[in-house]
């Protein structure tokens, strides 16, 4: 399953970097390749779509009776939910590592070294956890995989394409630039992009190492999202369990 769900990000990585390779000139010739720029976007996009699988998985557990079967055992109630989240985080971490290795093969070398990449993985795991909360809450609320998928599609693509995940802001019309600035996806992707590229792309400065302002801002936003989504998940899970 980890294997198959990797197809999309791998195809995106290979496809987008070709499709938008002309964008490299917006980034300043010779400073940053588009592939290096887009790697962060692909990593995030993967975390995004991966997180939505938790919602459909929990629907599957409810519908198949697997959840009931677990609930009839002495297993701790919260362990059932946290086990789910933990396995989602584990999956997204494995996928991220594979994407980073592939990007390395395409010539994306980490500007901040191994520590930078550990930070990337940690950020992605954190983001994945917060975002899993949305899909889990949807799954528990609607108990329909189709609905989760539908909402996932309706939410993922606009958020992703109205962000700086795959293009720089100056590529967008002005109204979209405004959206993109406050889009949590942009904020999260900046925190992933900085350790990979060593740049602050928005401000067009490079070779700055870790840009802690950007990273901490992202952690604040992700934490706020996570608090809401995981809170909702916990609430809905309690309702399903009782």
């Amino acid at each position: 399953m980890v294997f198959f769900s990797l197809f999309q990000p791998i195809i995106f990585l290979l496809l987008f970097t070709q499709l938008f390779s002309g964008l490299g000139r917006f980034l300043g010739a010779g400073i940053l390749s588009y592939t290096a720029f887009a790697t962060a976007g692909i990593v995030l996009q993967n975390a995004f779509s991966s997180a939505f699988q938790s919602g459909t998985a929990v629907v599957d557990d409810i519908k198949s009776g697997f959840l009931s079967k677990m609930l009839a055992t002495p297993v701790n109630r919260s362990a059932i939910l946290f086990g789910r989240l933990l396995s989602d985080v584990f999956r997204v971490v494995v996928q991220t590592v594979i994407i980073l290795v592939l990007a390395y093969a395409l010539g994306v070398y980490p500007a901040t070294g191994a520590i930078g990449y550990l930070l990337v993985i940690f950020t992605v795991a954190f983001f994945g956890l917060a975002w899993s909360g949305i899909s889990l809450a949807l799954g528990l609320k609607t108990k329909s995989a189709e609905t989760v998928f539908g909402i996932a599609g309706a939410v993922t693509f606009p958020l992703l394409f109205m962000s700086t995940a795959l293009v720089t802001a100056d590529f967008m019309p002005p109204w979209m630039q405004d959206v993109s600035t406050y889009n949590p996806v942009s904020i999260a992707v900046n925190a992933i992009r900085n350790p990979i590229t060593g740049c602050n792309v928005a401000q067009r400065i490079c070779n700055i190492g870790f840009d802690w302002n950007t990273i901490l801002q992202a952690y604040g936003v992700i934490a706020a999202i996570g608090l809401v989504t995981l809170g909702a998940t916990l609430y809905l899970f309690r309702k399903v369990v009782s």
């Binding site: 198949s64 009776g65 697997f66 009931s68 079967k69 009839a72 002495p74």
Partner: peptide, 11 residues
């Protein structure tokens, strides 16, 4: 701890 439960669905 002391009951075994088989649901209608095969799980």
């Amino acid at each position: 701890k002391i009951i075994g439960v088989q649901n209608q669905d095969t799980v």
